[in-house]
Structures are given as C-alpha cells and as structure tokens.
Design a binder for these strands. Structure first.
Length: 224
DNA sequence: TACTGATCATTC
DNA sequence: GAATGATCAGTA
C-alpha cells in the first residue's frame, strides 16, 4: 500500500498522470483518504467548508495554493470538487474566481482569470448527501473537461456583460440573477467586508468583494 | 427544492 | 485585505 501512496503528494507531470491519480480516489471514503494523509475528518462542514477541496488538492499534489492560477500550473489544469446530491446532480454552484474590480480597462475574455481557470478542469465528484456521515462520504470518478465552443461562448457572453457593468461603475447593481450560466455573488468573510474598487469616473471607492460562480444548471450539463 | 446572499478556515 | 478552498442557511 505504501508504494501506491508514494506517487501522491507530488505534482503530476502530465494530465494522464493526474487523471490516473484521481482515479485512485474513485469510491474511496473521505476517511480512507484522510488517513493516508494523516488528517482527521471533521464531523460537519459548518466550520470546514473548504475541507474536501483541500483534501483532494493535497492528495493530488496541487501547487498553485493561493495564487489566481490553475491548481496544476505547468499542465494548466484546475481542480474542482463538485458536490453531487443523491440524484447525481450538482448540489451547489461552483466558485471560479474573485471578481476583479480594479485595472479592468480593456480586459479581454481570453486574458481573464475565469477563462484561464475554466479552459481545463478536472471535475472530482463528491457525495454531498447530508444523511451520509462525513467520514463515510465517497469520491466519485473524475473527469477532465474543457468547454465546448458553445459552452465557452455562453460563458464569455455572461462574463462580458458582467464586466461591462463593473467597468461602468454599476457593480452594486449586480445581483446573482445576472448572467445565465456565470453569476456574481458575494465572496467575503462577511457582509461588512470591503475591497478596493473604483467608480465609472475612476475615483477610488470600496465595495463588497465578489466572486464568479457557475450555476448548477451549467455544471449539471457536464455530468450528463 | 432551488436559489441568493452570507459566512467559515487558511495562507500570505 | 485578498486570494485560495467552498458550504451554510433562510426563504421564495
């Protein structure tokens, strides 16, 4: 067993290697994976919301840590855990990245963080049914994905609409109802958090930090 | 049950 | 504070 484990925790050199390592997770419980990494499984996720994602990163050897870049930098792959309910559909929207609010003049879709992160994603399904105890929940079978031209066009259209609103100083008019597939929602420690932004005139101001999220209606199409 | 707005942990 | 990892929890 130890020999198998020894390949993990190291950054994968190729997509194939990453996919093979991820396949080892399929069917394993959180407890089994945590044990290999000498970690304890929390009782619930009220105070451990990112725990499963971090567990998967450690197991697979992700390197980008807190950078605004794909998790597996040199092979350009982003890792996303995707909670599936008992019907096998995504239970939550998927966080993509922070919304940039400064230095966005002339920012193009193809240069955006959203585009870069979503160009290649390793989706790792996880059980999210609350009737299953945390340590008994299992990982599913990972899939490597890139947006189809159609999907990318949809994301791009949403992104451009939303970024246009930000560029014209309308960020506080944005709610989660904007965007058909890509939405903007708060992404902060709490509702009083403030981040730097600027008005349409370029004057400094501050507003609630927000993030881009993929709607479940979009992610579910990936798993059909 | 789905959705929106709010929140939690960690790192630098 | 700003970036990462997300899920919580109230209500429509």
């Amino acid at each position: 067993m130890d020999k198998i484990i020894s390949d993990f925790n190291q950054p994968p050199k190729t997509e194939q290697q990453l996919l093979q390592n991820a396949e080892q997770l399929a069917g394993m419980t959180f407890q089994q994976v945590a044990k290999q990494l000498a970690l304890n499984v929390p009782q619930d996720q009220k105070r451990h919301k990112g725990w499963v994602g971090e567990l998967a990163e450690k197991f697979l050897g992700a390197t980008a840590s807190t950078l605004a870049e794909p998790d597996f930098q040199h092979i350009g792959v982003e890792l996303k855990t995707i909670p599936l309910n008992k019907h096998g559909r995504p239970a939550e929207s998927t966080y993509v990245s922070t919304v940039p609010m400064t230095n966005i003049a002339g920012l193009r879709w193809q240069d955006s963080i959203v585009c870069k992160k979503l160009s290649r994603v390793l989706w790792l399904p996880i059980e999210a049914d609350k009737v299953i105890a945390m340590d008994a929940r299992r990982f599913g079978s990972a899939t490597l994905w890139s947006p189809t031209p159609t999907q990318e066009a949809m994301l791009r259209a949403d992104w451009e609409e939303l970024m246009e609103m930000i560029a014209t100083g309308e960020i506080d008019k944005i709610s989660s109802t904007h965007g058909q597939h890509l939405q903007i929602r708060p992404k902060a420690a709490n509702a009083r958090s403030l981040g730097r932004a600027h008005t349409a005139d370029g004057d400094p101001t501050s507003t609630l930090p927000r993030g881009f999220y993929l709607r479940t209606s979009f992610t579910k199409t990936i798993f059909e």
